[in-house]
Design a protein around this nucleic acid. Structure first.
Lengths: 155, 155
DNA sequence: ACTGTTTGGTCAACTTGCTTGACATTATGG
DNA sequence: CCATAATGTCAAGCAAGTTGACCAAACAGT
C-alpha cells in the first residue's frame, strides 16, 4: 500500500516535520535555562502559562490541558503555592473546586519566562507579514484542532 | 522593562505558542501508540527518521542532531541493530566512524511510523494552499534556523 | 615507531519526571 | 444520609535521561 505521493512531496513533508522539531527546541531552550536557575522545571512554566492565560481554572481542567496525572501535577503546584506564585480560591458555587490564579509575583515570573518565546513568535510571525501569519495559524490550527478539543480548549 | 507590545498582540503570540504545543502533541500521538506495541520508544523513531533522511550519518552527527548523550543513544541503537532495522558500515576514509543506514526492514518500519505524520502535514499544508504552505515554512524556518545550525543541519 | 587525539562503546550510579494504585478529605446533590 | 465528585497524598516503580570513568580501535603528526 504505497501512497500516491511523490518522493519529492514526501521529502517536503519530512522537511516540515523536521522544521517543527527544531523550532520547538528553539522555543523551549531559553525558558528552560531560566527555570533551571530557579530550581523549577518545565511543568512549572506550563502551569504558570496556562493559568495566566485562563485564570480561575480548576485543577481538573488544568490536568486536562497539561495531559498529566494529578499526582504529577500536585507537587509542582504545591511548590508554586509555597513560593507564593499561585493562589487558590474556592469556587463560589462548588467549594470543592480550587480555582487557580497567579499572584503578582506569579504573573511577573510568567512574563519573564514566556517573554523569550513571545519574542521569537513576534519576530518570526511579524517578520513574515500579516498574510503569512494568518496562513501559519490556519495550518497549525488544522493540525492542533482535534487535540485541543480533547483538552477542552475552546476555540 | 515592559515591552512595546499591545496586550492584544501578547495574546495572539501566546495563542500561537499554544497552537504549536497542541499541534506537536497531535503529530506525536499516533506513532507513539505504534511504537509502544513494538516495545520501542520515541528515540527509536527519531533515529529511524533521521537516518532514513540522511543515510551514512555517523554516530557523532546523529548525536548532534538528536541532542542527547552518547550513552542515551547507545542502547536504542543497539536494539535497532539487534532487530536488524539499522546496519553499520565503516566509513571508507576513516574506519573508526560507523556510518548508519537503514535495512529494508528499517525503511519499511520508518515509513509506517512516519506515515501518520506525513498525512497530517500533507492535509494541513496542502489544504491551506501553496502560498500558505510556503508562508508556513518561512515562519518555521525563521524560528528553527539557529537551532538547526547548531545541530549541523545544512539548509 | 611513538604518542596523543578522535570515534565510539560500555558499565555504573544517579536524577527527573512521570506512572499506577490505594486511600483520605471534603463538598455536593439527591 | 448516602453515593458521587474534586482534590490531596503516600508509596512503589519505571522510563529515559544524565555524568563520570574507563577502554579499544583507528588515525595523524612528528
Amino acid at each position: 500500500m504505497p501512497s500516491q505521493r511523490s518522493a519529492q512531496r514526501e521529502r517536503e513533508l519530512d522537511d516540515a516535520w523536521e522544521l517543527m522539531h527544531f523550532a520547538l527546541r528553539a522555543v523551549i531552550a531559553r525558558p528552560d535555562q531560566m527555570l533551571e536557575k530557579r530550581g523549577l522545571s518545565r511543568v512549572h512554566h506550563r502551569i504558570l502559562f496556562f493559568v495566566a492565560r485562563q485564570p480561575d481554572l480548576s485543577v481538573n481542567q488544568l490536568l486536562q490541558v497539561l495531559g498529566v496525572s494529578k499526582q504529577a501535577l500536585n507537587e509542582p503546584l504545591r511548590e508554586l503555592y509555597a513560593q507564593d506564585l499561585v493562589a487558590f480560591t474556592p469556587a463560589p458555587q462548588d467549594r470543592r473546586q480550587r480555582r487557580l490564579v497567579l499572584t503578582a509575583a506569579g504573573r511577573e515570573l510568567e512574563r519573564r519566562l514566556t517573554e523569550p518565546q513571545r519574542r521569537m513568535f513576534d519576530s518570526a510571525l511579524g517578520g513574515a507579514g500579516i498574510r503569512a501569519e494568518t496562513a501559519w495559524r490556519r495550518v497549525m490550527q488544522s493540525m492542533a484542532a482535534e487535540e485541543m478539543a480533547r483538552s477542552g480548549r475552546a476555540r
